[in-house]
Design a binder for these strands. Structure first.
Lengths: 351, 351
DNA sequence: TCTTTGTTATTTAATGGTTAATAAATAAAT
DNA sequence: ATTTATTTATTAACCATTAAATAACAAAGA
């Protein structure tokens, strides 16, 4: 190898070598019609012989563009990048990025701070997922003139968003559970739920879903505080689902149905139940939320709420690109359809 | 909203406003010890009151750093971002990025060209996956001084890499198939296999695996050209697996075992077999490669080769950061262990 | 007192591609 | 010959960081 630090030729070198100005070199590449064909020829020849191509950093600076959109991780990687639902959304975003000739930047917290990450994110637009956005972050993005679209965020905030009707969807699936006679129910909420009430009055998705469950329970003369209903918290991972089983049983031995807010958690529970040779749904029913591919692969197949992760990603990023291009100005909110999917993991309650 | 284009204050504005130079402002943030405490105080106050923080683009230019590493997609999104194995690798990379305070840039082809994408990628290092790297791309990265680590690439190229011993792993699992009496076998290779021989003499992963199968077959007196062995090609997706079943049967009605190079394809096949009510493994055995989470969820559980996707991502990105930081210079190749996992999808052949 | 040396504080200039604004040169029209 | 239009090319600004240069000032020595 060459020990001498190879220095890449810059536009200045091409200018000097070809006898034209930097501007002329730039035009030769980007707007050749503004130069004489003689100049273009000479410049391109020079550039070619020196192996020149523009430095992306400098290019991005002068264009004030990054040619990338960001996906802001709401928590650390362990709780995000192994959730197939989130990955499905990312897949949708990538598809749009590809067709827009953009890259997709996955943005973890920077020095443990989401705010820091947002300050220095090298992106033209940002998509968040599953977070109630603090004002500070919105303010930074506003100052930086970076548009934002929130997926599964807080639909009551004045931010462009893509959501399903989480309250109604949760109500609907809980009704299916109650309709089948279940009364001793364990609800597995997501751990973000913890923060919901405390930090602010932001209605995050877990809270909306709890409200949906609550409304359904009321219709059957129950409430969230009824002793037959218990609530557990879990991270959104398969492993947490696996570990949840012992908690469920110890907290409420008479439980007949577990209602979770996430398929991957439900699948973890189902997996554990199979290992423990507990009959689903005869002994215990399990219900999820998302409708992953995995949910129809596992036996018994999972009863769940289908929500279009891929489409959410596509809609959100298309919307984001509209903002980036200045096509729209107003705060657009997109509500995508959901669908209750009844499969074998939910059975009738037999007293 | 404000119709006036908000112009973010720049370092120049803070300099002017505070009465110090641009450099002084920069030092106030990055090296306050080089200024009088009086100057620091005044500058920070000014910056704060004007709501200044550094423009990442300009910052990156002067530092000649992007604070991001790239993951280069070998094909279009449809064939990559929905493969759980690739996503597992990406998860591993993200973990390292998070701890290094870097972002991860997913880089699809730019204007349908991987070469273009590499030219303008705003990253400090690049990870590729499952591609035999053309010289052109290596050359561009060399010019740009951007280090590269290849996962599942061509181990014979002089490029830092992370691989398993694909030839031996494939040999081993094929032996398990043959040991159980199977002789009418359909091999499902990956579509990249097509290019392998034609374009260059690069040994891509599919080719290595074919060679491993071949060696095993020879040990049992068979060969790839034997009429009892047939080879099909497939994209690495669930859907392609589902659609493959009819091809398998039409090409070789007497097949007793399907050996695939990818779990997600095998899972697609298994899913279709379940829909068609074909007994696995009594009528047809199926073998995969990767050992996804899904492979132990599906019934029957999939026989496969376990390879550590997460670790591959972690190793590759750690190696890449070593190159970025200049900690190492030589071309390091990492070989990670694999393991044959026998599960219910592979049975004995009953004549 | 005047120079030398050392220390601290601050500024200049370069980094690199793009483009608005400007200038220069040439052709066309009056 | 003079004005107008068109083509071609250049200057300067954008922006944060930092190596290198400079300025300011004090202490030490002649």
């Amino acid at each position: 190898m060459n020990d001498i630090k190879k220095k890449r030729p810059t536009i200045k070198d091409i200018a000097k070598e070809s006898g034209y100005s930097k501007t002329a070199v730039s035009f030769a590449f980007n707007e050749p019609s503004r130069l004489s064909s003689e100049a273009v020829k000479k410049i391109l020849e020079t550039a070619n012989s020196l192996g020149y191509f523009p430095n992306p950093l400098a290019r991005n600076l002068s264009l004030q563009k990054h040619f990338s959109i960001g996906f802001l991780l709401p928590q650390n990687i362990n709780h995000t990048m192994n959730n197939p639902y989130i990955l499905k959304v990312i897949e949708g975003i990538s598809k749009v990025c590809e067709s827009e000739n953009y890259t997709l930047t996955i943005i973890p917290p920077l020095r443990s701070s989401i705010e820091e990450a947002v300050k220095s994110a090298a992106v033209d637009g940002l998509i968040t997922m599953g977070m109630g956005l603090e004002n500070k972050i919105v303010e930074i993005l506003d100052k930086r003139n970076i548009p934002l679209v929130a997926i599964d965020g807080n639909p009551s905030q004045n931010i462009p968003s893509v959501n399903i009707d989480d309250e109604r969807a949760s109500h609907d699936i809980m009704c299916e559970v109650l309709k089948r006679g279940h009364r001793n129910i364990t609800i597995v909420s997501l751990s973000e739920d913890l923060f919901t009430d405390k930090i602010s009055n932001i209605k995050t998705v877990p809270l909306l879903r709890r409200q949906g469950y609550e409304r359904a329970l009321k219709e059957y003369g129950l409430s969230l505080t009824d002793e037959r209903i218990s609530i557990l918290l879990s991270e959104c991972t398969f492993e947490d689902g696996v570990n949840l089983y012992s908690q469920i049983i110890s907290q409420q031995p008479s439980v007949s149905c577990v209602v979770t807010m996430s398929d991957i958690v439900a699948i973890g529970i189902l997996y554990k139940l199979r290992v423990e040779k507990i009959d689903v749904p005869a002994t215990l029913s399990v219900v999820g939320f998302d409708n992953l591919l995995e949910s129809k692969l596992i036996s018994p197949r999972l009863t769940t709420v289908d929500q279009p992760g891929l489409d959410k990603g596509i809609f959100a990023s298309n919307l984001l690109f509209d903002y980036i291009k200045g096509k729209i100005e107003n705060t657009t909110r997109i509500e995508v359809p959901y669908k209750v999917i009844i499969r074998e993991s939910l059975g009738e309650f037999n007293a």
